[in-house]
């Protein structure tokens, strides 16, 4: 049995952000999020170093590192690569043991991961090759509207008249948004409409995979309270939201690193 003093880390190299969680048997020691640069390995080293800063822990003290996310293969200092969905499932099992599915709204794609009774990944589904259902789409819309990304959620909650978008293509919705702005529609109404269209896509994934019971939201998209509310309205099941949804895959990766050491 491993002593609680050992350190492990999970690193999630997403397409928009790189995240690291360092933990030991007593809990999370440190975590860090940085924008993903052009060079995955460089970013990975940077975010890792940033997470270790001021902790008194060195790279050489870390017994195991698990990498996940689109750029995981580039993290040459990781001991193992695991898919982000396995990491999300592992995180959910630990943090919300009664949950039956994870909805992960990442920058590149949206996924629904169905769990079995033991909290292990049983099945998964991802959105089709279209940006309209994921985080990158929200970044584009925020840019078009000139609203900082962190503010689009709270602003959308002020909406009194949700704008309906008929199109499901990200590029067309972008030009529709520009037309609505020209028509002097309020930004909060436009944002509420965009959230509703993403929520509809999420709901259709949940229906297709036929997941039931408690669902938990994860990924950067879950930081947007406007989107969270829209998803809650669309789903016919209880929805849990963690405090730091952007870190969930990295945390799951760290748990997997810990599990691996325990088994050795």
């Amino acid at each position: 049995m491993l002593s609680n003093g050992f350190y492990v880390a999970g690193i999630d190299m997403g397409t928009a952000f790189a995240k690291v969680v360092v933990l030991n048997g007593y809990g999370i020691i440190s975590s860090r999020v940085l924008p993903a640069g052009k060079n995955y390995l460089e970013t990975a080293e940077k975010v890792m170093q940033a997470a270790l800063n001021k902790t008194g822990v060195n790279m050489t003290d870390i017994a195991s590192i698990v990498a996940t996310g689109n750029g995981a293969a580039n993290v040459s200092f990781a001991c193992q690569q695991v898919s982000d969905m396995s990491c999300q499932a592992r995180w959910a099992r630990h943090v919300f043991p009664s949950t039956m599915a994870v909805i992960d709204i990442g920058s590149q794609s949206t996924k629904v991961i169905k769990l079995d009774e033991q909290g292990r990944m049983k099945e998964f589904i991802t959105n089709e090759k279209c940006a309209a259902g994921n985080g990158r789409f929200l970044q584009v819309i925020a840019y078009v509207l000139g609203v900082p990304l962190d503010e689009i959620g709270p602003l959308s909650l002020k909406s009194e008249k949700v704008v309906k978008f008929t199109n499901s293509c990200a590029v067309f919705v972008e030009s529709e948004v520009i037309s609505r702005v020209a028509e002097q529609q309020k930004k909060e109404d436009i944002l509420a409409g965009v959230h509703a269209s993403i929520a509809a896509k999420v709901a259709s994934l949940v229906q297709r995979i036929r997941s039931e019971g408690k669902h938990v939201l994860a990924g950067g998209g879950a930081r947007n309270i406007g989107l969270v509310r829209s998803i809650k309205e669309k789903l016919d099941c209880p929805l849990l939201v963690p405090d730091e949804p952007q870190l969930t895959a990295a945390l799951g990766a760290a748990f997997i690193a810990w599990d691996g050491l325990q088994q050795e």
Binding site: S83, D84, M85, S86, M121, K122, E123, F124, T126, K129
Partner: peptide
Amino acid sequence: RFYSDSEVNSKIDTFMEILAR
């Protein structure tokens, strides 16, 4: 143009993790 290597590969990776378990 209707196919993405990275998307399909990451789905296969995840699926193989389910099978391995």
